[in-house]
Design a binder for these strands. Sequence first.
DNA 1: AAGTCGGGGCT
DNA 2: AGCCCAGACTT
Length: 358
Amino acid sequence: MEIINKEKWIQDLLTWYRENARVLPWRSEPTPYRVWVSEIMLQQTRVEAVKPYFERFLSAVPDIPSLAVIDDDMLHKLWEGLGYYNRVRNMKKCAQVCVEKHKGKLPASYEELLNLPGIGEYTAGAVASIAFHEAVPAVDGNVLRVFSRLMVSEDDILELKTKRKFQMIIQDLMPKDHPDEFNQAVMEIGALICVPNAAPRCNICPLAEHCHGYREGKAHYLPIKKAKARRRIEKKTILILIHKHKIAVRQRPKEGLLASLYEFMAYEDHLTRNQIQEKLMQSGYVIDKMIKLTSAKHIFTHLEWHMNGYLILCEDLGKCEDFTWVSVAEMETKYAIPTALKIYRDAAVQWLKSEGDI
DNA sequence: AAGTCGGGGCT
DNA sequence: AGCCCAGACTT
């Protein structure tokens, strides 16, 4: 299957993009640093979710040298709620490499970008084409979906060879004088017209006359993707320890889920009040009061947390070397808490503030 | 090739 | 309740 009338296809695409492209913060001034930050934030993340983070991050961390030396807690706080926290840690590593080897700048070629931490084939292609105008493809989920439908491809788009196939096709057909607009235009079609999880809007698609999926009435069941593994469930008991208007937090391990973010005391399984008291007493805590909080469920990609939460007022600190006692103000400004635990942080903050009024 | 890593909005 | 999002990295 090939794209019919290549020249007209591309001209229709670019004309549509120039008239319909969304105005986005990272498009107005596509410097390498801004494009890179936006592309990392946009990995597996919707445009609307990124918007409130982008300018705030750029203001706090205006360039690569400042990113290379930023405090890790501040880095996590800037990313708090955005998810996939490895992204921002890899950005810092990448910035350090740029300072050491590239005079504090991003290297200007696809091949060099690809070697940097956190930059894979898609992001290398996006930065190279948008910031440096190099004619290389940038194949993301949008592009895979759009081309599956355009070409009536029944290849599984989750397979590596399918991505490779589309990379080759796009490398060959993309206009070498406007790689930035071409790559963004295909993604924009995917975001606005050839949408996921809903019927494609073929009636207003500028590429409809070139689209084999549309012409054969097959666009709606493409692309093909194989089923994903189902999630497992973890039961947890979350304990918010409070002593002298401060909350006990500890840092999670440096690797794994929610690495290096902060959390509250927690146990596996759903414990009864007696079991909780027993465990806390064993650790030397004297419980003054125990308040049941709302239960909560948090869904990750491959995991669910089913949580029971308790607010615990303690008299004695016990043996709690691995916990730090933090004020409400510190909680809000310094310690990054994963969204899964946000309702418990908010409950603790609210309780402490209302208690102060009484 | 399969598993890990977040969070949210839509269907 | 499942899907997928301007994916990368590890095993």
